[in-house]
Simulated scan of single mutants.
Amino acid sequence: MSDALRFVDITEDQLDAVMRVRARSFGVMAAGDREQWLKDARVFIQDGRYVGVADGDEVVAAARFWDFEQWWSGRPVRMAGVAGVVVAPEYRGRGVGSKLMRGVLQRAVDKGFPLTGLYPATTVIYRHLGYEFGGGRYRFSFPAADLRSLGGKEVAVRRAGPDDAERFLELAGQSHTRRRTSGPLVWPIKEVKEWLADEENFAYLAEDGFVVYNWSGSDLCVDELVAGSDATARALWATVGSGSSIASTVQAYISPDDPLHLLVEHEAYKDVQHQRWMLRLLDAPAAIAARGFAPDVAVEADLRIDDPDVPANTGDWHLSVADGVGRLTPTEASGDVLQLGPRGLAALYAGTPVATLQGAGLVSGRPAAELDTVFASATPYMLDYF
């Protein structure tokens, strides 16, 4: 790797160069998407969340990260959502991607993010840097007529728009807290308003729920549906299914544990789409303190973490969980404690059973018996690709 390669903040006058590298990585951007990409890029630049690697004055790699919150067992945790990772073809296989991502990790640490997540184009580089699978994004397909027949006519439903953005966020938060959800993102309200203002999206609001959907070819596709009761769920799904005279199929981004699977008469079609996303802890004590835990289980356990890329995570720690709240404090561990690196820590945080982690060689030593129970939650899932 050339000594001239250096980690840099992307500037506005470098965006054309980034776009050229992006075209070689993802293909040429559609003309209609360019302006929105530039608009978003300027926001990332202003907040120091667009970074790259330059060879001399030439940008040869770049990445950005979103300022998200992500629900973990019913509590939102701040998360840096890494996106748009690109490396010029002639620089691949030379350590440029690792240099870029180590810079991303440090920048996210500096900005106070306890977690970072991403959708991997390849798992190799990200696992090398401490990421591990955290959950999935699932798209199920249902007969539209099944949804239309769900009823819920007693529930009042109205059209919604950008002025309802705060209510949408409030309803989603209430639902995720009640269900102790793990995985979904909390988008900035500006993005939610733009989502609801998009004329290609159809948004409807009930007293305790909402739905946003759109056309996907000849099918309808649900981006998100939140309901505080089965009656509201039936009403909102039936609203989508009312298009069954035109669309025979409704695609839906939902959890594998969503109540819809129990409401519909027939099971979802077999063509389930599943994209896996990866997670990494950047500040282990802060991530543990922010996460929700099973409210009726307590645990006291010592952990030994070895994290070469985020040294502040390295050391002996005492994990204490009680009444749904966790703490990770420095300690002087002794005996056969549970030992793990950043991949094992991320997977444990996401609820992967300890026996699975042992089988993969991601943890060693003796775990506390209650670890699986305190970290367990419904299947972690995301609705959004970023």
Rank of each mutant, 00 (worst) to 15 (best):
V8T: 10
I10L: 15
D13C: 05
D13H: 11
L15N: 04
R20K: 13
A23D: 14
A23N: 04
F26V: 07
F26C: 09
M29H: 00
R34K: 08
R34Q: 15
R42V: 10
G48Q: 01
Y50V: 00
D55M: 10
F65W: 11
V77K: 04
V77Q: 07
R78K: 15
A80F: 09
V85F: 00
G93V: 05
G93C: 09
V96C: 01
L105C: 01
D110V: 04
D110Y: 00
T116Q: 12
G117D: 08
P120N: 02
P120K: 01
A121K: 03
T122P: 00
L129R: 07
G135M: 07
Y138R: 05
S141L: 02
G151R: 04
K153C: 03
A160R: 03
D163C: 00
D163M: 12
A165I: 01
A172W: 02
Q174I: 09
H176N: 12
R179F: 10
L185W: 14
E194D: 13
L205A: 02
D208C: 05
D208N: 07
G209T: 03
G209N: 02
G209V: 06
F210S: 06
V212N: 07
V212H: 08
L220V: 13
V222H: 02
D223W: 13
D223H: 15
D230K: 11
S242A: 15
S255L: 04
S255D: 04
D257F: 06
E265V: 11
H266N: 13
H266T: 14
H274D: 11
Q275C: 03
Q275I: 06
R276C: 05
L279P: 10
P285M: 08
P285W: 06
P285D: 05
F293V: 02
A294Y: 00
A294S: 14
D302Q: 14
L303Y: 08
D306V: 14
A322M: 04
D323K: 10
L328W: 04
T331I: 03
G335C: 11
Q339T: 14
A347M: 14
A350C: 12
T352C: 14
P353N: 06
T356G: 02
A360W: 15
A360D: 13
P367M: 10
D372W: 05
T379M: 13
